[in-house]
Design a protein around this nucleic acid. Structure first.
Lengths: 270, 270
DNA sequence: GCCCTAAGGTATGGCGTTGGACCATTGCCT
DNA sequence: AGGCAATGGTCCAACGCCATACCTTAGGGC
């Protein structure tokens, strides 16, 4: 659905492409083109905008009770017209995810998930299952690990300035004192912070996309206390390695951390 | 221009975000949203399709003299209508990049770059300069290294099947016996092959995008024979490490390889 | 208490894109 | 030689999205 989201497993036949004469490669070249020739602008702009806003909500970037940016700004940021954006917000309102207030200091506010009535759950769950089924799990897990390990390595290698280090520490702290059930939001924010601090906006954006997909998948499996504690230790060690400017250690910590999640997901979903 | 291409350096103010009260984070949250709230569908579909085809040409995925996929297939793959695609091809034809032949076994063929007359060079060079200026060099280099190192690590860690190993060896060989001036095409194909073999289609697609940007940048700097020989040795060592299923070595080789290119580009463009 | 401002709510004309159908051309195969 | 099939070339009605302007609501400041 989203162009950013990894997807479309097995998009075409995966021939061996035995590197024949480069001249008759008309058919052999077709596979080569696969990574580049992907659908431009999948679906209508409405769906893409919806996906983006949903991503913001799923990542917990705007917690319940908080306000989304104003319609005009949001539309501008997403590159769609306000009409289209409003269509998106209307859907989200019908799903019980947001509510709008007029007047100055009004806006569109995020509702707590629990408030969602029957309609949302039915549609949401179906949507989730549909989305989950269409995702290439291995693709997601591999890509995620590459980005995460890369981000950790970059942060550790180049070092963080004072503000960056503070943000990272704050994000780590945010994973501890967290409301029950809000752990994954803290976890997401910590990893996203690291991605942002890597100094590559593209990396951060790609990570946000893949993380949203990952969160969908994680919602399908139970949250185990043991894993949680384990994760916490790993997070601490990871942040330490980054702040110590030890790239090898940071990468290795992150690799282990990702491997844990990956094993969990493979076990529950494979 | 392309949503996949890294870009838009410094999209907004980078406040410290001192993790204040989460409730008044209305303004503080804005920065958090930056990675997610990127323009959906930058520009019209026409421009995106043009970008994709240009990417195919710049990456050398379809060498001069070869045929692009048929219009109907290309349009289908890119997710645009045939009318729009034809508009793109018309522009490329006017720029002297491709030519079309009707009838069965006809199609749209790629022309050698040298054939380009005055019009193309003028427009092309201007376009290149514009694009180059708008690219965040550090973003590109960092993201590229992350993807490359990740791909190398994945390939080495999971091992390649017979066909994969053969493809990799063939791609390596393709960097040696190459027509003069065609070295970068071989280099691109080798790296792209590795990305494809990583088992993450998303990674491959992202690499293709960033590599296209990188190739644009590389065209601004001279090709040094010493670097070329050095690259060749690194390529050989890299492929060896991958085929030996030695992830650490593969990652390290790739890291060195990327560092070389990065230093070169920083030196010439910084 | 008035007015200004920032926010959501609404309506309209225009342009790009789509999907389909059809024609024109060319080379291979029977 | 004829037909077939794959390809580029052309046209058109319908739809979606966009840009823009304007209205309505509500809170704060003078």
């Amino acid at each position: 659905m989203s162009r950013n989201a990894p997807g479309e497993p097995g998009d075409g036949p995966q021939e061996d492409a035995p590197e024949g004469a480069p001249e008759d490669a008309a058919d052999g070249a077709r596979d080569r083109l696969a990574p580049v020739l992907r659908p431009v602008r999948t679906g209508n702009g409405f769906e893409e905008a919806l996906e983006q806003i949903l991503r913001v909500l799923r990542l917990g970037l705007v917690p319940a009770g908080e306000r989304l940016p104003a319609e005009r700004e949001l539309a501008g940021r997403l590159g769609v017209s306000r009409v289209t954006l409003r269509e998106v917000l209307r859907v989200l309102h019908e799903e019980g995810l947001v509510t709008s207030r007029r007047g100055r200091y009004g806006g569109t506010f995020v509702l707590p998930r629990a408030e969602a009535g029957g309609t949302r759950d039915a549609g949401g769950a179906a949507e989730l299952r549909r989305r989950t089924a269409s995702v290439d799990l291995e693709d997601v897990l591999r890509f995620r690990e590459v980005l995460e390990v890369g981000a950790a390595g970059l942060c550790a290698a180049q070092g963080l300035d004072g503000a960056g280090a503070a943000r990272l520490r704050a994000a780590l702290a945010g994973t501890r004192d967290t409301p029950p059930g809000g752990y994954r939001r803290g976890d997401t924010l910590l990893h996203l912070t690291l991605a942002e601090l890597s100094g590559s906006p593209t990396l951060a954006a790609q990570y946000a996309a893949v993380r949203a997909t990952l969160n969908d998948l994680l919602e399908c499996i139970p949250l185990l206390v043991r894993n949680l504690e384990h994760s916490q230790r790993q997070h601490t060690a990871l942040v330490e390695a980054v702040l110590d400017r030890n790239p090898e250690a940071a990468r290795e910590r992150m690799r282990e951390h990702c491997a844990g999640t990956a094993a969990l997901l493979r076990g529950f979903l494979a």
